[in-house]
């Protein structure tokens, strides 16, 4: 469903991704790990369609279409969702109004009717329960004054509401307390299906204890330098990244 080939991307004259390739099938869960500043969030932003990055080479194919030819809105409509590492606060826009507008905007662009208010409310209730999102947070302005963990939970709440085909979780685990980590992961697990794939960016094995990945990739220096099964994550947890760097140097 997702094929990234030899992706090169730069920002302000600096090359951040240099030849990144990655393939994912439908229903798969892949994890990306890698040192700080290696380009993980950059990859997430590029998938979302942020135009601050210049793609100098390579391609991204999503469900058979050229993802790079779509703008941010069109990608969301096509079924790409990013749970951001740093979700933005939007004062004055209520979470509910935002989600209703979002869902109906996607439906509208697909030529579908708006979601009936009753169905919307039922869905809100169901998805909020899934990640145990406090009712008060639903009615507040988008992310405004939310704690770090509440913001992450709100991202997964939106994920559940929008039902994307590809969900990228950028360090959704950081900032979550132990209980929240368990709740959010079981929420994500409940959303797994044969059609929906997850790309999980994380620094820690503990998230992968809950959400067990099919593949684990190491991103370093703007490329995938190693891929393996879930045991690769354990190995990284144990040994850090130095051994990979050393192996690469040889």
């Amino acid at each position: 469903m997702l094929k990234i080939k030899n992706l090169h991307a730069r920002v302000e004259g600096q090359e951040i991704l240099c030849g990144l390739s990655l393939e994912m099938g439908s229903g798969e869960v892949h994890a990306i790990m890698g040192p700080n500043g290696s380009g993980k969030s950059t990859l997430a932003s590029i998938l979302a369609g942020r135009d601050t990055y210049e793609i100098t080479e390579g391609s991204i194919e999503f469900m058979g279409v050229d993802l790079l030819a779509l703008d941010a809105t069109e990608r969301a409509v096509a079924g790409v969702f990013i749970a951001f590492q740093y979700p933005v606060e939007i004062p004055g826009v209520s979470n509910m109004n935002f989600l209703r507008t979002s869902i109906n905007s996607i439906r509208d662009q697909k030529g579908e009717e708006p979601m009936p208010a009753k169905d919307f409310l039922a869905k809100v209730k169901q998805c909020a329960k899934l990640v145990e999102l406090d009712g008060k947070l639903r009615d507040r302005s988008v992310n405004e004054g939310f704690s770090g963990g509440e913001k992450k939970r709100n991202e997964v709440f939106q994920l559940a509401m929008l039902e994307p085909l590809l969900a990228v979780l950028d360090e959704t685990d950081s900032g979550l307390d132990i209980d929240a980590l368990r709740i959010v992961s079981s929420g994500v697990n409940a959303l797994r299906s044969a059609e929906r794939s997850f790309l999980i960016i994380t620094h820690y094995q503990r998230l992968l204890d809950h959400i067990v990945p099919d593949r684990v990739h190491v991103l370093a220096g703007g490329r995938i330098v190693r891929s393996g099964d879930k045991s690769l994550a354990l190995e990284l947890e144990d040994k850090g990244y130095d051994w990979i760097n050393e192996e690469l140097a040889q």
């Binding site: 941010a72 809105t73 969301a76 933005v88 979002s102 869902i103």
Partner: peptide, 8 residues
């Protein structure tokens, strides 16, 4: 961008 990434 955040709003657009949600389909607006």
């Amino acid at each position: 961008f955040y709003l657009r990434s949600r389909g607006l």
